[in-house]
C-alpha cells in the first residue's frame, strides 16, 4: 500500500504509523461526561469497505492527517488533509 502524504506525496506504508478511527469526534478538552469518553476511547466499528483513519508520516515530515481507505482492498479513496 502507498499512502499520499499531504506534504511529501505518495510514499510506502512503512513510512507511516496508523492512528486509528478518524470518524469519531474527540470530546472537548474538559468534557467530564464519562459515557462520552468511554464511547470515544473504547467503542469502535470495524467497517469492511470505505473508512476514514488517522495516519502519521512518522519517517518523513511527521504530519498527521486523515485518509480515506477501503479496508477490504486498501484502495486509497481520498488523500490526506
Amino acid at each position: 500500500m502507498r499512502i499520499p502524504c499531504p506534504h511529501c506525496g505518495e510514499r510506502d506504508v512503512n513510512e507511516f504509523r496508523y492512528g486509528g478511527d478518524a470518524t469519531k469526534q474527540r470530546p472537548a478538552h474538559g468534557d467530564k461526561d464519562f459515557q462520552t469518553w468511554n464511547a470515544y476511547v473504547f467503542e469502535f466499528d470495524n467497517p469492511k469497505g470505505p473508512h476514514e483513519e488517522f495516519w502519521q508520516h512518522t519517517l518523513g515530515c511527521r504530519q498527521w492527517f486523515r485518509l480515506k481507505r477501503n479496508t477490504a482492498t486498501n484502495q486509497i479513496l481520498g488523500g490526506g488533509q
Binding site: R17, R26, H29, Q56
Partner: peptide, 16 residues
Amino acid sequence: AGEVMSWLEFLAQCHW
C-alpha cells in the same frame, strides 16, 4: 520517547 512525541503531535495537529 517516540510514542510520546507522536502522541503530542497527534493532539497538537489533529485535535487542538
